Amino acid sequence: MIEVGHNRDQKLLHQRVLVMHPKGSYQEFILNTNSDWLFPLPINVSNAEAATLTAGPGVALALTEFIKQNPSDHLVITGANSVIGLILCQLLGSTYPGLTPIVSPDSQAYFNQSLPGYPVYSIEHLQLFHGRTLIIDIAGSEPLLQQLIAAVPRASIASIALQTSNLNVPFTFVHEDFNHQIYCHLIKTVASHKLWLPIGRIFSFAETKKAQHYAKDHHSRGRVLVNLN
Rank of each mutant, 00 (worst) to 15 (best):
G79L: 10
L91P: 03
K188V: 00
L53R: 12
A55V: 14
S159V: 05
E3D: 12
H219V: 03
L99G: 02
R16M: 03
V59T: 15
S104A: 13
L225E: 08
S165N: 04
S141F: 06
P119C: 02
N32R: 01
T33P: 00
I67T: 08
A139R: 02
L197E: 10
L115H: 10
Q212V: 06
F171P: 01
D106L: 09
A139N: 07
F29R: 14
Q113R: 15
Y214R: 05
V103S: 06
T54K: 11
P170H: 07
S165C: 03
Q69H: 11
V17E: 02
N229C: 02
S192Y: 03
L75I: 09
L186S: 08
A60V: 06
G117W: 07
R8Q: 11
D106K: 15
A62T: 13
R16I: 00
M1D: 07
S107V: 01
S46K: 07
F39C: 06
G24C: 12
S165I: 01
V45W: 13
L128A: 15
Y183L: 07
F66W: 08
L144S: 01
S159T: 05
R132V: 08
K216T: 09
N34E: 10
G93K: 11
L12G: 09
L148Q: 04
S159F: 08
G222Y: 13
I157K: 02
L134D: 01
Q108S: 01
P170Q: 06
Y26Q: 12
A139H: 04
I43E: 15
L145I: 03
F178G: 05
P119M: 02
H21T: 11
G93V: 10
H6S: 15
P40D: 02
L186Q: 11
P22W: 12
I123E: 12
G85F: 09
L61V: 07
S72F: 05
I202L: 04
G117V: 05
A139E: 06
A191K: 10
Q113M: 05
P97R: 01
A51D: 03
I43L: 09
L18N: 10
P22H: 11
E207P: 00
L167N: 06
V120C: 15
D73I: 00
I136G: 02
R221M: 09
E65F: 08
E28N: 11
Q212K: 04
N44C: 08
I87F: 06
G98A: 03
Q147W: 02
R201Q: 15
H14Y: 14
A191I: 10
A155F: 11
Y26P: 01
H213V: 01
S46V: 10
V224M: 08
H175E: 13
T189G: 04
D106P: 01
E207R: 12
